[in-house]
Design a protein around this nucleic acid. Structure first.
Lengths: 208, 208, 208, 208
DNA sequence: TATGAATGAGAGTTCATTCAT
DNA sequence: CATGAATGAACTCTCATTCAT
């Protein structure tokens, strides 16, 4: 692989980007050195600066997301359908290569960086969850949509970062139904029930 | 305060631990220097090595969790009650001081480190989720319990790392009802429904 | 020497400063590496940053001049006397150590840096030549004073940078009389003679 | 201009040389990159190595001086005339283009390089000052000739490197008369006066 | 011939950590 | 026991230079 790519600018750039995504996903921003990435790509580390300017810009490009336009534009699509698609697209899928992970999950390993956190917030809340918010009628629609986001991000985290056994092994089809049930419950739950924690209902103690 | 701590080994150790927890929680492992921690604690940086051996060991001790024994030992406590308690204890509460965050959330900002990931897995799945698993009757009990874990971890992440607006502002009482609804749905959902994604039911396309 | 200086902050700082002055004087700013300086001083290169912050600041401190107050304050002192003192102080002398050169001459080796050039200009023209300017009555007093400066700087350059044989070998006493003659001529020369180049007087061709 | 130079090897070489002279004069050897020079010349940086072999050799060629034969060959020309010509030729004039500076002044900004210093010494003392030396009868003729050199080099330095205000603004005609007076004084000054510093004569203290 | 992708050495700087005092 | 001076390894990034096309 390293042999056939010599003197091919586009291929070298792509190889660096892919190696960066893998390294950043695995070890986070600070745990990854430019020499590691270059070695993985089979080229000299200098090319990172030639092609991307700096490690920061390489990271930014590596986790750049092309937001799929019109994800939830069709108003007839329901909440569960939307969730299902997002679950498949972000958490369970291959993106830009057979082994890459979704940029959102890559960023999750580098949340020590303030810039990464703000990008995460922007892309997650503004880009992805906006469509969900519209589908909740309650006045706490944003909160409910962010709970959906929390569930999806949590699943991704459990699978890729934490490596929890069951979720990591589970297939998409095994998971989608359960997730749909949880999200649907969020839609059906009447706002009035808020403040009446069911914890008490079955005899448990209040948290403290 | 700096005066009363002088020559008090235990107090210095505690101050270092608290400072470390705060710094690690805010900036992650790599974003935190031993000199920062020592400066916050008002002592010399060398004491970190004297008391803890290394930065790594300080981190390990800082995120050490004393698992509350018998959390779910009472078999009469239901799933929702258990979730409610965990949500309050881990995500919404103060631990070990007015400003500290729960060790699990601290670790979430340093997930680039392999050792952090394995500790996260162990503590989360083995210690916290075991009790949940028992309360699901289905054969995919572990998967369901990890979905609860994913939801809780996701909420914590959205609040403290991502800083999503609604969840960050929401009070415990505003959140607990919605979370309970989601978890209860997970309990009620029949296993047979798996594999029949409701995404199709409302006209949406299949993911892919 | 390197053995007896261990664990002595002030001595280490001084050794670094002296080594820096020598290296900068010999090879200029860009030709000198922090590791070279540290090796000369017999300490680790990191201490440069510990004590001076950066290579730039080390350089600045290395070429810092304590302008001797009241150099030409005594109005009875004549031009030649002033020149004589400056010649002895800047060009022919040891400053801050047996082998150091005057900061002005050190800077002359690093004139590629814009900051160095402006510092040179400020210190030379404002600090050193101001007193000379007052002693010329003509309306081109500044020009004449800068010619004195040019002569002195040129001598220093010939001796330390160019290494011209005669000037480098000459003693202070051998040089001072000749310099005095040149400066005195500058004082006696009537302004009216300007524009009448003496080159023509002895039959030489006009330049061009 | 960029169009007419295409495929013209000689013109490209000349353009590189001119750009190099300007860059080296302005920023010194270390402050100038081969890419800067090539960009100024409008060609690829590789051509520098093709045409000149290395950056060092390009610099050497850029500051190469074609010594005008027989500068002082006419024994009837006096000292002042010679000085006047040199002042006009080296310091006050354009050489090899409207904006270039004399190679001697270019070198003055790169005096950190050892090769530059030896070239400066050779060209200055051997080529330029030899004729001056012959015109001083005293046994310290070389010393006196080097003082002339020091004055001229100092003037060049003050104008182009230091940027001292008066000398930089002064015209050739304003300067030549004063310089002539200084040089003539050097000729008239009897050798016996050496060692009797006039500093004492007007009441100033001896240096030390 | 001329282009530009690729290279390796070295720059300044920061870091956790150790060792005298 | 505690302080802080000292250390060495690693980092990102720039540079002149070479090689393939």
């Amino acid at each position: 692989m390293a042999e056939t790519r010599r003197r091919d600018k586009a291929a070298t750039r792509a190889a660096l980007l892919e190696a960066a995504r893998r390294r950043f996903a695995e070890h986070g921003y600070d745990g990854t050195g430019v020499r590691d990435i270059a070695a993985d790509a089979g080229v000299d580390a200098t090319l990172i600066f030639r092609y991307f300017g700096s490690k920061r810009e390489l990271f930014a490009e590596a986790v750049h997301i092309e937001i799929p336009q019109g994800l939830g534009r069709d108003p007839r699509r329901g909440l569960a359908s939307l969730t299902d698609e997002l679950l498949g697209r972000v958490v369970f899928t291959d993106h830009g290569g057979p082994e890459s992970e979704h940029p959102l999950l890559v960023m999750l390993r580098s949340t020590g960086r303030p810039e990464v956190r703000s990008r995460l917030r922007d892309q997650l809340c503004a880009d992805y969850l906006a469509d969900f918010s519209e589908r909740f009628g309650a006045d706490d629609a944003r909160l409910r949509s962010e709970l959906v986001g929390a569930l999806l991000v949590g699943i991704g985290l459990m699978r890729s970062v934490v490596g929890s056994p069951a979720l990591s092994e589970a297939s998409f089809d095994q998971t989608r139904g359960l997730v749909a049930a949880m999200v649907t419950a969020l839609q059906d739950d009447a706002p009035g029930e808020r403040g009446a924690p069911p914890g008490r209902a079955d005899g448990g103690p209040a948290p403290g």
